[in-house]
Amino acid sequence: MKYLMLVVVDPSLEKNGEPPLTIEEWVGETYGNGKATDGDRLRPPADAKTVRRRGGKVIVTDGPFAETHEWIAGFDILECADLDEALEIASRHPMATGGIIELRPAWPLDL
């Protein structure tokens, strides 16, 4: 099953101890065993654009969709047997100790 793992930065959160792995170790382990297939860091919210189509017109605005103090800093695509495996992988990501990891199962279109 495919999962989108969003790595979220929240400056208001305090780091809760040392992460189980460094980011280099996590990437080596997760991508090395084929459980992650793609991912990257993202530029900061100031570099984001939001696109909407309203009344037949395209509206492009600066910044993220939501005005919050947290932002998506990166993503990974996980290929896991089930949710439990995805949760285990996400829990080992270094940002789980000082940020937020959000997992979203893919919902394929049945065309």
Score class of each variant (00 low, 15 high):
E79V: 13
D10M: 06
E67S: 08
G99L: 10
E102K: 13
L6F: 13
T37F: 00
I72H: 08
C80T: 11
K57W: 00
E102T: 09
E70P: 06
P108S: 11
K57Q: 13
T50D: 10
D38T: 08
P105S: 11
P105H: 02
H93Y: 11
L13A: 05
I72C: 14
L87E: 15
D10C: 09
W71E: 11
N33W: 00
G17N: 10
T22M: 12
A90G: 13
D38A: 15
P20R: 02
R41A: 15
V51N: 04
P44R: 13
E29I: 02
L103Y: 06
K57Y: 00
S91F: 01
G28P: 05
P64T: 13
P105W: 04
G55K: 09
D62C: 07
L21G: 02
L4I: 10
E29Q: 13
P108K: 04
L109F: 14
G63L: 04
L109S: 12
V60D: 02
I101A: 04
T22N: 11
A106D: 00
K57V: 04
D10Y: 07
Y3I: 01
K2Q: 12
A73M: 02
D38S: 14
D38V: 05
R104K: 15
G17Q: 09
H69I: 07
V8Y: 03
R92S: 14
I100N: 11
I89R: 04
I72Q: 11
D62E: 15
P20D: 09
T37Y: 00
L103A: 06
M5N: 01
A73F: 02
G99T: 11
A36W: 07
L83H: 09
Y3D: 02
V7N: 01
T68E: 12
L103N: 04
L111S: 08
I77D: 06
G56H: 13
S12W: 01
V7A: 01
K49S: 09
V51L: 15
L21C: 05
R53C: 15
A46N: 13
V58I: 15
E24R: 06
V9E: 13
I59R: 07
D10H: 05
L111Q: 05
